[in-house]
Amino acid sequence: MTRKFLTLAAGALMLGMSSMSALAAGKTIAVSWKTFQEERWKTDEAAIKAVVEAAGNTYVSTDAQGSAQKQAADIEGLISQKVDVIMVVAFDSDAILPSFKAASDAGVKMLSYDVLVEDPNALYVTFDNVGVGRIIAQEIQKVKPEGNYAFIKGDKGDPNATFLFQGMMEVLKEALDSGKVKNVCETFTDGWKPDNAQKNMEQCLTSTGNKVDAVLAENDGMASGVVAALEAQGMVGIPVGGQDGDLAAINRVALGTQTVSVWKNARELGKVAAEAANAIADGTDPTKIAGVGKFSGGAKGVEVNAILLAPTPITKANVSAAIDAGHITKDQACAGVAAGAVPGC
């Protein structure tokens, strides 16, 4: 009886192993999305799916619908389906840690996508968020090296709001210390809401008597609120920075009411992450993948392997970059801009 069982088990094991080796190219790569409530994730998904399927692997996905519990259950489900790699866009980067551990224990390779999960066994693929803040500050400083700067920060509960601000401060530290640049307003904006940003900017202008020379907003939605507030004071045209590559923001850049929108090309991020996932699924050591370095800038300071992509600043000079990449149509980008006034329009 026992022997029979053992033979069966061995046979099953053999079968399993042989099927695994037969599927050398046919790995399964799963993505656990935190939500599909934002448009951008569809872009990421399309890019990931294309790369995964081009390599002969299978793409599966789950949607946590903005719930940490659902995401944990999703990952459990994926582990029991015996997928090879799980890419996770974490909804709550701390609450998901046990799921990461369980997956690693079960031999599933983990990858944290866009949102940092501080698990040393997971590869972190993202845009350099501190870098985004740095670029916003650099572009603003290029056009306005001295003066009063206002900072419209994102939601206080989002670590990215702090990363972005850190980046800005790295660039501006010297100018702030020497007094060339003065920080006259600095506010968090509830929920990253544009209308809240507009009110914050209005209060900033009132409380400084309009003595603001440049505004660094942490995203484009809030930049739209800032521009509306500036317009009411006839101050449109002073440097305004933002990020996201919002279609309306690229149009504002072409019109000259916004100086820079730092664009994180989601297609690019999806492509790089999917390539990394393919490689890991084939057994490549994460540290051997091109572009991988060490990152320990998270809240707990855990060192993880990471790929940090550099984002693209969209300024008047390279509006065409977003058009050429198919991110925005020429009509949308150049609405209201005289033909030839801006390169690409």
Binding site: Q37, E39, E231, A232, D246, L247, A248, N251, G336
Partner: peptide, 27 residues
């Protein structure tokens, strides 16, 4: 809010019509 998201695919729709903007009090 889900319907609103689908309508504009999550994008910010801008800029508004010039006359419509008069109702906003910023110009």
């Amino acid at each position: 809010s889900g319907v609103a998201f689908l309508l504009a695919k999550g994008e910010t729709v801008a800029p508004m019509d010039k006359t419509f903007k008069v109702l906003g009090g910023t110009i």
